[in-house]
Design a binder for these strands. Sequence first.
DNA 1: ATTCGTTATTTTGTCGACAATATGCTTTTT
DNA 2: AAAAAGCATATTGTCGACAAAATAACGAAT
Lengths: 219, 219
Amino acid sequence: MAMFEEQAITASDKAFFKLRKEIVDGVILSGSKLSETELSTRYAVSRAVVREAINRLEACHLVERKANVGARVVSLTPEGLIELYQVRESLEGMAARLAAQNMSEDEIADLNTLLNSQSEEVKTAELYYQEAGDLDFHYRIIQGSKNAYLISMLVNGLYHLVRMYRVQLGMAGPRVTSAFDEHKNIVQAISLRDSELAEMLMRRHIMYSKNNIKAKLQS
Amino acid sequence: MAMFEEQAITASDKAFFKLRKEIVDGVILSGSKLSETELSTRYAVSRAVVREAINRLEACHLVERKANVGARVVSLTPEGLIELYQVRESLEGMAARLAAQNMSEDEIADLNTLLNSQSEEVKTAELYYQEAGDLDFHYRIIQGSKNAYLISMLVNGLYHLVRMYRVQLGMAGPRVTSAFDEHKNIVQAISLRDSELAEMLMRRHIMYSKNNIKAKLQS
DNA sequence: ATTCGTTATTTTGTCGACAATATGCTTTTT
DNA sequence: AAAAAGCATATTGTCGACAAAATAACGAAT
């Protein structure tokens, strides 16, 4: 899996990664308050590094902070999910368009082999694909866009929120095979350098995904 | 002008706004280093608040920071400008689409009166329109999307960078009247609740704008 | 009993100092 | 003379303490 490792240099980095993980995984409950003093004792670091970590989490929309009051983990709502997926549709659509223009032939080949290897897994272990494989696919296209803002906004920003929704709403849906076919079509469009089509297919792919989750949310 | 005032509560807020303004306006040169100690003496605050301000600037892509080394103001490059406008096209296109769906009739009416008032100014004082009027128009549509992520990413994030490019590349272009017509068409699409068309027109509008700036950049 | 005002406590915001890391300079070696 | 090693300096990262603000607790008045 081509999951790029972010490596922590400072103590703030470590605190940030740890906190982010706990929030995304639901260890720290959605909507709960983040006490700076409590966290600093729990992580055995100063309040300064906790503060910096929280600031960074605010930048990725994982916590909300009010001046002189404190920070809370964002609460997951159906409206928030819709809005998140609208932005995803917009940004990842553009990413697919740019990927069709900017990905190297080698990168496209890698993407194809990835899909083929997943093709086997889809028939057997469906769960694996849905979680990691889907992410890997989307990550590669985002990277393939070669657009620094796009990459940063999605990878460092929104995707953790997306994962948070997925984890905490327990997404292990029946959309595995259909999503796989959509992936294949997108890669084909990219292979043909048809940026227009690639964007369109990616947008639809994310729309379907949104509708799928929305349905789950109401059940 | 419906420019929403962000009000500074803490000292970090004030430092953040001040620093951001100086960077966008080019008072602090693009590419230069931001010394925490120097800034803390210049602003007469502690290093902690300067650090927090710099962290926030990093989140809006106005500075780049390396661990244990420091922060530098981003340098403006043609490639960066292109990438920025690609993201703008994507996000503001979606904003226009959502605005067509979600803006109230009153808000649309306001937008129309804004355009009509600008219609006068275009014939006389062209400069005013280009700077403030154009921003006002785009801000209203972004707000009209009613999508919190979209609004935050554009207004708190990318738009300061957009303004930085505009200010420092000296944009007072001859695109005034044509842009005005494009604005009119977008508003009309929104009035008709034609979200598809609104998105398409907005994307083209931003593409034209990009090409205009790109041409200026090479001259 | 409930509401309002006051006080006490907790939490965040800010500060200055120390530790750790990187940068620049001098010295030494080949 | 050039490159490398070591030292000095400056800058960032981290810490604990104090100041300011908000929340909670308490008591008084209606």
